[in-house]
Design a protein around this nucleic acid. Structure first.
Lengths: 294, 294
DNA sequence: GGGGTTTGATAGGCGTGTCCTATCGAAAGC
DNA sequence: GCTTTCGATAGGACACGCCTATCAAACCCC
């Protein structure tokens, strides 16, 4: 039963029988049969049938909610028993927005002190992808914005409030003092791609300041942004914590962006599951200890 | 997997391999094997082994919590799919404290108006039994005291506050006006057995009023209490709502018990499961509509 | 519009898992 | 010390799950 629910979740995620089967490590006929049996057992049609995958029926959507819950709990049970057997160990899968990537090392550091046997796996994703991966049990926790766009049913631990700086090559005329958002009208910029919430936040502040900017370069990674700042005459806008790591040398400079002093809360998000798994409880605990916010 | 978890729950409930197997409709060797496989899969010992059942290991207790959650969710999924197929129907299993039995008809009445295809199954239990049965998935909801003794992780809907009357045969000298708890020192009483929370509440009020009473008759049913009041010279103490149904004729009388005007909240309790099953959601909704309290 | 591709369903065979009955060994009870 | 109770074990029947191979329908592209 649980295996079939896992296959059902995979199907809903992949929207394709073959890919879902591959993801589950079974063949396509096996997955097809499993879905059919699930439908028989539940007495309802879960998937619109045709020669292609055509989405879930309303019952299927409803069943998906429970399937995720059940499968998630089952995994948690197994994980918790493993913890009981061999202590806190295993992998903790994180997905993180690009602008918070530098914060991960703070978390892994403080966590590693008390739980050295836990390995981390970190990937850079958009905030929307993080929420989707949490739903689909593909990650254990995420690091993203907490209070700009709706999150769904998750547990959150606020960590810090993002504040923004303008980053440019040393000697850039704007670096002499704080810069207003409204002053950026004619400044050539490179920014994150619009699928990133950070970019949407920045765009919003620029628009509110009456500026309409089309960035010269868009990228999904801050490394690309900073490289461009170093090698060309573009400037970029980054959260302080993301920028710091690049400001060690003398070739770059940064000044605060003011009017307004924008501030957006970033923190940990984890599936809301009662009770918490031991690793997750430990992670949230360490994150709370690390938090700059109430 | 889910089947094994069900067997595990049954074993924890019955504390006996043979009985648990019987309850699950399998033979004892099958259940023994299932538990062993569960232990293998989880990699931990769940049950203390010996020639007899000797209780759960700490890991077993922890696993039991998740097992209940998973099995409960799986049942909910099946139920919800059945509802999607044939509308709100099926059985709703209630357990109710004796003094709230008369309230059940109010709930079934208002519920039946909107959902005529749902059958009810009602049994009279102590408050402790109700909580245990909720945990063990033996009932769907309960009707019991909400704020005297700890409930655990449940959803509650307060319905009304119990107030107490002294019930005695018509003409009994105490029936002329309100009676103080402290006046009951020499009155021969029949009361519920001490495993009932109502009895513990009454005893507590009597003790606080400085009275120590040993009831002449103890019973676990209010019908027995009232019968004794009718046929002998005993009096009893009942919540107003439990007493009303017996006061239609002229042979019994009731007067309020005062100093203090004791008041204990009674309401629905249901397992805390997100999201709610449709039947349960409907039941809680109707109960809220019925509630006398905020 | 026809050949090729993609997609999901179906058929048949094989291995594993699950459940049963029968029986055993150990401990508890009289 | 004998019987009863309780849970584990052994062996066999059956079902289930998964695989490979194949099919039918829809889509795609020239």
């Amino acid at each position: 039963m649980i295996d079939k629910l896992e296959m059902f979740i995979a199907l809903a995620r992949e929207e394709h029988f073959g890919r879902a089967a591959l993801a589950q490590g079974v063949t396509q006929p096996t997955l097809s049969a499993a879905i059919k049996q699930l439908e028989d057992q539940l007495g309802v049609m879960l998937v619109w049938r045709g020669s292609r995958y055509q989405g879930l029926t309303p019952e299927g959507q409803r069943a998906l909610v429970w399937a995720r819950q059940i499968v998630g709990d089952a995994r948690t049970l197994r994980q918790e028993m493993r913890v009981a057997r061999e202590g806190l160990s295993g992998d903790l899968r994180l997905a993180v927005i690009p602008t918070a990537l530098t914060v991960v090392s703070e978390i892994t550091a403080i966590f590693g002190e008390s739980h050295p046997n836990v390995r981390f796996s970190v990937q850079s994703k958009t905030s929307a992808e993080i929420l989707s991966m949490l739903d689909n049990l593909e990650i254990d926790a995420g690091l993203t914005y907490l209070n700009n766009e709706p999150l769904g049913r998750v547990t959150t631990v606020p960590l810090y409030a993002e504040r923004y700086v303008l980053v440019a090559k040393a000697g850039h005329p704007l670096l002499s003092g704080p810069v207003k958002w409204g002053d950026l009208g004619d400044v050539p910029l490179c920014l994150l791609t619009p699928d990133m919430q950070n970019r949407r936040i920045i765009t919003q502040h620029l628009v509110e300041a009456g500026v309409e900017t089309t960035p010269q370069v868009e990228a999904s990674s801050i490394v690309v942004l900073v490289s461009h700042v170093v090698r060309s005459n573009l400037a970029t806008i980054l959260p302080v914590r993301a920028a710091e790591i690049f400001l060690k040398g003398d070739d770059l400079g940064a000044v605060p962006l003011i009017k307004p002093d924008a501030s957006h809360v970033v923190g940990l998000v984890a599936p809301h599951r009662e009770p918490f798994t031991p690793v997750l409880a430990a992670l949230l605990d360490r994150a709370r200890a690390l938090s700059e916010l109430a």
